[in-house]
């Protein structure tokens, strides 16, 4: 990762007296044009455009007639948006905790010099190769109340058994969570496993000499040492949660009723379904705000760590 800045500069300095600076290193600049266009026009320009238009009355078509904060007021007084935010909070909280705990536990178990590690690892990771659409549809089928898991348990003799999250507004987010955790924990496990492999074996020897138990060593010594890995995982999980969309579309379509709506779906419906562009822009700007809120503490932590170190 160490990048020496000086390579082309050395050549540049020799040519410093050439008339035009623009033409220096020209092939590189031409080669970078797609990147520059994407970064500046599509990403930066697009984001600014959406934020600006979120303060307008845009409906069927985008138009620049100012509405102040009207779109945001409408957004936050909309029942569907509030439900979306609540759902995202529930899903986000449990997904964050669940992914970290399961990911770390699996990694720690795999790190105990076991046989068949590669087999276990590929079983835990394969769901990550699948799309959220495939994930959502499989779990929709497994959680089918008449023919799926609930039915199997009832046939086994436990006739009163009831587990039908996809048709119960109170627990539908947990139906999604089961699928989401199935798909995403493998990645975090891999990252955690790598973090564990990066820890010096002497730490374990020292802990054993001091007579500290295995579990205690993990909690008191290993996890604090893996702080950067946990921070990376947190950012990955956090950014993924805000984007939650395909899974909901495939597994529940936002139902029953509006009980599993999420912000990303609200945006898509407002923009491309409801011809209500202003709402879509305001809602997507709120999503941007959420990501910024997640990223700021992370950036702060990164720099805080650097300064102290």
């Amino acid at each position: 990762m160490t990048i020496s800045d000086s390579r082309p500069d050395a050549g540049d300095r020799a040519a410093a007296r050439r008339p035009s600076r623009l033409f220096r290193n020209l092939p590189s600049k031409i080669a970078m044009l797609p990147l520059i266009f994407t970064a500046v026009v599509v990403f930066l320009g697009g984001t600014i455009w959406t934020v600006i238009y979120s303060f307008t009355k845009s409906g069927l078509l985008p138009r620049l007639s100012w509405a102040g904060l009207d779109q945001y007021e409408r957004l936050w007084s909309s029942r569907k948006w509030i439900v979306s935010i609540e759902n995202l909070a529930i899903y986000g909280f449990f997904s964050l905790i669940g992914t970290l705990v399961i990911g770390f536990t699996l990694a720690a178990l795999l790190d105990r010099k076991i046989r068949g590690e590669a087999v276990f690892r590929s079983i835990f990771l394969y769901p990550f190769a699948l799309s959220f659409i495939v994930t959502g549809l499989v779990w929709q089928w497994i959680l089918n109340p008449e023919l799926g898991l609930q039915n199997v348990v009832r046939e086994m003799g436990w006739t009163g058994f009831s587990f039908d999250p996809l048709n119960n507004p109170d627990i539908v987010m947990f139906g999604l969570l089961i699928a989401g955790l199935w798909q995403g924990t493998g990645l975090i496990m891999c990252i955690m496993l790598a973090g564990l492999r990066g820890i010096d074996e002497d730490i374990w020897k020292a802990a054993r000499v001091d007579g500290i138990g295995t579990v205690k060593t993990y909690i008191r010594v290993i996890i604090p040492m893996m702080r950067p890995v946990f921070v990376t995982s947190l950012v990955l999980i956090g950014a993924g949660i805000v984007k939650l969309y395909d899974l909901v579309v495939a597994q529940t379509s936002g139902g029953p009723g509006i009980s599993s709506e999420v912000p990303a779906k609200y945006v898509m419906t407002a923009m491309f379904g409801g011809q209500n562009l202003g709402q879509g822009f305001a809602a997507s700007t709120m999503m941007l705000v959420m990501v910024v809120i997640i990223l700021i503490p992370w950036a702060y932590l990164e720099f805080g760590g650097k300064k102290h170190g």
Binding site: T47, M268, L277, S284, T285, M287, L295
Partner: peptide, 14 residues
Amino acid sequence: IGAFIPYQVMLYPI
């Protein structure tokens, strides 16, 4: 930085 922005923010301009 663009990689972290939710896609929904950029969809309509695109």
